[in-house]
Design a protein around this nucleic acid. Structure first.
Lengths: 345, 345
DNA sequence: CATAGCCGCGAAAGCGGGTTCTATCCGCCG
DNA sequence: CGGCGGATAGAACCCGCTTTCGCGGCTATG
């Protein structure tokens, strides 16, 4: 028989009732079922390879034991390199709790927020959104309805539950590092378009750091990327084309930094001698770039884990609010910022 | 009322029976339901924002309308950069068919093949496995049981359904390219450990290309990576440490190539002047590396799409067998192989 | 006009498991 | 010997949907 055993089968095989099977397998307390019977049921279930039918369970319990993850991406080939480790972090926590992870990849244009259907069809119990935008109406309505949603980065909704990675502070650190190295004209390229909150927060942090150092902020030295290295390359060329010179660049993330460095190289500028570059995220490849990339380690796996944990808190009925991730955001100084270069002098 | 409407609600609102609602919404043929009634039902369903409860549907139909994707990864931070675009390709096809995508990230050690439970609990209708290994007993049993499984790369199982990306041929092309440039001592670093079939196929292709050119294959010039740039770096140092000189390196993938180039640089070797490097996959960052990376474009999105399509064929009862992906695998010649360099001479 | 045929639709039976609630069996105590 | 309580069996209902069966009412035909 190719059919999976049902709880009825287990009951028959163990010589008990279906009720007993259910009570034992769900580890209900105070049901007064003898140790012996419990052991027998568990044993039979294991030997028959019994796994409860998830659909039946979902139907009766109203919960799907599944977490949804929304990953937005721009063009065909532009992914946020930050996403995979984040996903693994989430996945790991979900697994320990017996939850599944459903991925919803939304392509830039199709603002079809298909993930709303996942909620309506009760396919997921909670949602984690990587690149959230306040302009996403469906998302706003979802949060209004008090469905458990964890956002990476606030969208300023009163009922939202979001995780601040504390990257604003780290972005300040990165900028301050460049300033401390003596740079007065610093450019910035965001890692995503204006309608995402994350890159804009980072831009504001960049600006704050300049303000603190009494360095005027120049709109001309800001470019807008779209996750990909290619967009970093394009944005850099655009800034260069504006004719306003700069001696340092804070890239919104490492992928952007890689594209930017290629554009600088192509323009005959040496990194870090002519332009110092700092990235963000500390991607695994950052230390193998040429020159090796000074960046901020944001520990995406830990962020994923904390997002998942926050989601479970929501599921347990606790509020999360706008919470700060508990991360040790460290500036990793390598070659691209020129700090090591100066020392050599 | 915060409750989602059920088919009963739709039936009431439209003044028909639940049966009619079900038949209309599932677009059954030959049920003889008047156009008018159909329109009314559809309209009511839309206006009430009705989405069928997935659990109930799964339970009664026995199908989950969900595809599982198994992603293996090694260490904490080592992901196959190939995975994200592949995932998006799969996701896209799934979405057009109304299927969901469930991710199962397996960490190297824990060979717990937890995805078997997904099958047993009927949470997924089909499974796609990225990094498959013939030593995965659970996987072999799953294939034996004729559950719809699509493998990336054959594991030599008689009943398997797998997709050959045709990368063996492309790997030969890449190697031949190096040979044609005059290299006699060519090294290779696999992108994953020996127990995965993909990297081993690539290694064999590498060897075949050498054989064709009558160049002896040297075990000493082969290193084993583990998805990450860091592993490419380590493997390269290891090969260098063996003292056997080489003038060209075919890296198992671009990430490995990046790590390898860093190791070569560190050893005082210039790429491509001292060592020519060719990568694999044409990651988006390949053309922004320093030097820009000669590589093979493997179109991972298309591979994902074709894998998903193959999975749907299995679901429709058709056999897939070991099929070759329909891809245009192009060698992208950039700086790292030195082909452009030679021309300059 | 009667009977056959057909169309549109309602009633009802599950799908598998969670959650009562009552019935039963047993040993044991008063 | 009646009663009591612990341990479980068993029946019943529910979750929301798909699907089969067959009922009424209608049209076609002899």
């Amino acid at each position: 028989m190719t059919h999976r055993p049902t709880s009825q089968d287990i009951a028959r095989a163990a010589g008990v009732s279906r009720t007993t099977v259910s009570l034992v397998l769900n580890a209900k307390e105070n049901t007064g079922i003898s140790e012996q019977t419990q052991a027998r049921v568990l044993e039979t279930a294991a030997s028959l390879g019994y796994v409860p039918n998830s659909a039946a369970r979902m139907l009766v319990s109203g919960r799907s034991r599944t977490v949804g993850l929304v990953l937005a991406h721009g063009d065909l080939m532009s992914f946020d390199a930050f996403a995979p480790p984040l996903m693994f972090g989430i996945s790991r926590v979900c697994n320990t709790r017996g939850y599944k992870l459903l991925i919803e990849a939304v392509e830039g244009d199709h603002r079809r927020n298909s993930y709303l259907d996942l909620v309506k069809s009760k396919s997921i119990d909670a949602l984690i959104v990587l690149n959230s935008s306040a302009e996403d109406e469906g998302l706003v309505r979802l949060i209004d309805s008090r469905f458990p949603v964890i956002l990476f980065g606030s969208i300023g909704h009163p009922k939202e539950n979001s995780l601040r990675s504390g990257t604003e502070r780290a972005a300040e650190l990165a900028t301050e590092h460049l300033v401390r190295l003596g740079h007065q004209r610093v450019a910035h390229i965001t890692y995503a378009p204006k309608w995402y909150t994350g890159p804009m927060e980072r831009l504001r942090a960049f600006r704050r750091a300049l303000d603190k150092a009494k360095i005027p902020f120049a709109e001309k030295l800001v470019g807008y990327g779209d996750f990909s290295a290619e967009s970093g390359y394009r944005a850099t060329r655009e800034i260069l084309g504006r004719g306003r010179r700069f001696t340092a660049l804070f890239a919104g993330n490492d992928t952007i930094a890689v594209g930017a460095m290629a554009a600088l190289r192509e323009a005959g500028l040496s990194v870090p001698r002519d332009v110092a570059v700092v990235g963000f995220d500390d991607l695994p490849i950052a230390c193998y770039c040429q020159p090796t990339l000074t960046t901020v380690n944001t520990n995406p796996i830990a962020q994923g884990e904390q997002a998942a944990l926050a989601a479970f808190e929501l599921l347990e009925g606790r509020r999360v609010g706008t919470r700060k991730c508990n991360l040790s955001l460290k500036l990793i100084i390598r070659e691209s910022c020129g700090a090591t270069l100066k020392r050599e002098k």
